[in-house]
């Protein structure tokens, strides 16, 4: 009797899992389709899809597809996956569905680090990435240490408050850098860069960040089940055999590195890390075994579509960050207003 019942439950479980796998496969297939569509869609020679004739006979068209669109699309896909995965990990590790790396000063630290290099050294993908990562980790470390010193509120609140303070400090420092910037050259570059965009993607830039993003994504994906456990209270995690603090710090560093890699080439692309994990939890479950992979794919799709729209809708480029903010905020309102938000706030 009991074993029959367990058998039935087991079958339901497997059916559910198959359902999640199917959805993941569907997302992967859409990603492939959108990648091809996006490669062939643009404003040269006129708005619309490339004709086969021009692809084969127009040498400039071939160059545009291979040297301009392709690296840009790869960056959009990996960048979207990185931002969404990092947001997902931050939300789980802080047991707070309303955070993303912008909280804890990570994005502001990265922005300051990148801007400082642009102004005082000139744009170099490697140094921008290095400096952005350094200051993002510094901000993360400061937020963590300062939260320990606060004598007000619970741990999550203390962390949010110290993150706000550290974020504000780096935002102020960023303003100082802007004041010092040359208004005719680097100030413009910083301003446009801060709006977020992949407009100057090249193979060189793509290659400089692809390895870090890939490694970060693989590391996060391989520990996906444990991310669930790290969302539980510390004491519970400890009794379940986890080295809670160590595992949390490692994953936060990996998530931060993933974020700064894309920030260093695309500037501040906000809302992806906040909104996409919510969408993933609705499509799958809160279980990171499925929702983390779901977040990565949805993030990739979200950024790919946003970027394609940004470069084709108007004759001049709409910065990517503006499009993601617009769609992200609308989706956010929609998700939090619906009954099945997948989280309890």
């Amino acid at each position: 009797m009991i074993s029959k019942r367990l058998d039935r439950l087991n079958r339901t479980y497997n059916r559910q899992r198959q359902g999640y796998h199917k959805r993941l496969a569907l997302l992967a297939a859409s990603l492939v389709v959108f990648t091809f569509l996006s490669l062939l869609f643009g404003r040269y020679p006129s708005v619309g899809f490339v004709s086969l004739d021009s692809l084969l006979n127009d040498p400039l068209m071939g160059k545009i597809v291979v040297n301009i669109r392709m690296p840009r699309i790869i960056l959009a896909i990996l960048g979207g996956a990185s931002l969404a995965a990092a947001g997902f990990v931050f939300q789980m590790l802080f047991a707070n569905p309303l955070v993303e790396p912008g909280f804890l000063g990570v994005s502001q630290g990265a922005a300051f680090g990148a801007a400082a290099v642009i102004v005082f050294y000139g744009y170099s993908s490697f140094y921008v990435q290095l400096s952005a990562t350094f200051f993002a980790l510094l901000a993360l470390y400061l937020s963590y240490r300062i939260a320990h010193r606060f004598r007000f509120g619970g741990w999550i609140l203390r962390l949010v408050l110290s993150g706000i303070a550290v974020g504000a400090i780096f935002s102020s420092l960023l303003s100082v850098v802007k004041v010092l910037a040359d208004p005719t050259t680097s100030l413009q570059e910083i301003t446009f860069w801060m709006m977020g965009g992949l407009y100057n993607s090249t193979w060189e830039r793509a290659v400089s960040v692809i390895p870090t993003m890939m490694i970060s994504l693989i590391v996060l994906f391989s520990v996906r089940w444990r991310i669930n456990l790290l969302s539980l209270p510390d004491r519970t995690g400890h009794t379940l055999g986890l080295s809670v603090v160590r595992e949390r710090i490692i994953l936060l560093i990996v998530a931060t590195v993933a974020t700064t890699s894309i920030i260093s080439v695309a500037g501040l692309v906000s809302w992806v890390g906040l909104i996409v994990p919510h969408l993933a939890r609705r499509l799958f479950t809160s279980d990171s075994r499925y929702s983390l992979a779901g977040s990565m794919m949805l993030g990739a799709l979200f950024l790919l579509i946003s970027d394609t729209l940004g470069r084709t809708l108007l004759s001049s480029e709409i910065p990517l960050g503006i499009i993601t903010s617009l769609f992200g905020a609308i989706l956010f309102i929609f998700i939090l207003s619906s009954r099945q938000s997948g989280v309890k706030l």
């Binding site: 439950l9 479980y13 789980m92 047991a95 707070n96 569905p97 444990r226 669930n228 456990l229 969302s231 539980l232 209270p233 004491r235 519970t236 009794t239 379940l240 055999g241 986890l242 939890r281 479950t285 809160s286 279980d287 997948g342 989280v343 309890k344 706030l345």
Partner: peptide, 28 residues
């Protein structure tokens, strides 16, 4: 973890894990 287990007084996750997923955490 294999020797000592804890039933805390109050523990609520903000994330909507299903009951079976929640119990599965015990296998960690």
């Amino acid at each position: 973890g294999k020797n000592v287990g804890l039933v805390p007084q109050d523990e609520r996750s903000r994330f909507s894990f299903s009951s079976i997923e929640y119990v599965l955490f015990g296998r960690s």
